[in-house]
């Protein structure tokens, strides 16, 4: 399968005044295949969020390169086929759902007449029909993140970057949104890079899982998830699922120092 996004030898360290800088990402290489759902899993604080911010260009890498379909996007901030879904939703509180979803279209110069229709399409897709004119404070956390999805999808990204998008939600909402994400992913045909610290979530959603060792973040190994699609919740109780969860946990455990 063709490679969509390729990360080559990324390095990132953060200065700490006069102390030695901390290496957060070191010699990180990973290829994300076209249209696959790749989960990146690692313990909290292992640098996986930093990794996503590097990929989106929000922070510059010290060295290494990021290629999208072979073209170098290492120094491009945002855009370039990347759509980001943020952990704490980060909707604009002064915009309604409709206006939040239109934001990326607006800054990309899509005319008003087209924006309305595109935004409406994605609002319907994520199940927020009827809440177009609500402000974020009038929506539950789950609904806010639905709007966050719609905002990212509206710019028709080639790759969707998701930074623990369900991390701030309760377990029930999380389960529902996982299923809906799978639905949407099947309909929209997108490459997804999904960062999480939940092993179950990674197995349930992904085609492949990159297990990250903490600080500096490096790929420990890549695990293929064999379950057929479309997936339903009953795979979570299959012996293979439990075995895989155990396997990943034992890899992660080695790297965690509490």
């Amino acid at each position: 399968m063709a490679t969509k996004l390729s990360l080559n030898n990324l390095h990132k360290s953060f200065g700490r005044g006069k102390a030695n800088p901390i290496e957060v990402v070191q010699d990180f290489s990973l290829d994300i295949r076209d249209l696959e759902f790749l989960a990146v899993i690692g313990p909290s604080g292992c640098g996986k969020s930093t990794l996503l911010r590097l990929i989106d260009g929000l922070i510059p890498a010290d060295s290494g390169s990021i290629l999208m379909d072979g073209r170098d996007i290492s120094n491009k901030v945002g855009g370039e086929g990347r759509g980001m879904v943020f952990q704490s939703f980060d909707l604009f509180p002064w915009r309604t759902t409709q206006a939040n979803v239109e934001f990326g279209l607006e800054t990309n110069g899509v005319p008003k007449s087209e924006r309305t229709g595109i935004a409406k399409h994605y609002i319907d897709l994520v199940g927020l029909t009827g809440f177009e004119h609500s402000y974020p404070h009038e929506l539950s956390g789950g609904m806010q993140q639905r709007a966050g999805f719609a905002r990212a999808l509206a710019i028709k990204p080639e790759i969707l970057l998701m930074d623990e998008p369900f991390g701030a939600l309760d377990v029930q909402t999380r389960d529902i949104l996982q299923n809906e994400l799978l639905d949407i992913w099947q309909k929209e045909k997108k490459t997804v890079l999904f960062v999480t610290h939940s092993i179950e979530e990674a197995i349930y959603l992904a085609d492949r899982i990159a297990v990250i060792t903490p600080r500096p973040a490096r790929v420990d190994r890549i695990i293929d998830v064999p379950f057929e699609r479309p997936r339903t919740e009953d795979i979570k109780s299959r012996p293979e699922f439990l075995e895989m969860r155990q396997e990943i946990w034992s890899i992660l455990k080695e790297g965690i120092k509490v």
Binding site: R53, L58, G78, D90, F92, F103, T107, N108, I155
Partner: peptide, 15 residues
């Protein structure tokens, strides 16, 4: 974080 959202959607400084 809200500035990051704007940057992520490649919003220029004036916008």
């Amino acid at each position: 974080k809200i500035i990051d959202v704007a940057r992520s959607y490649s919003t220029g400084p004036v916008e």
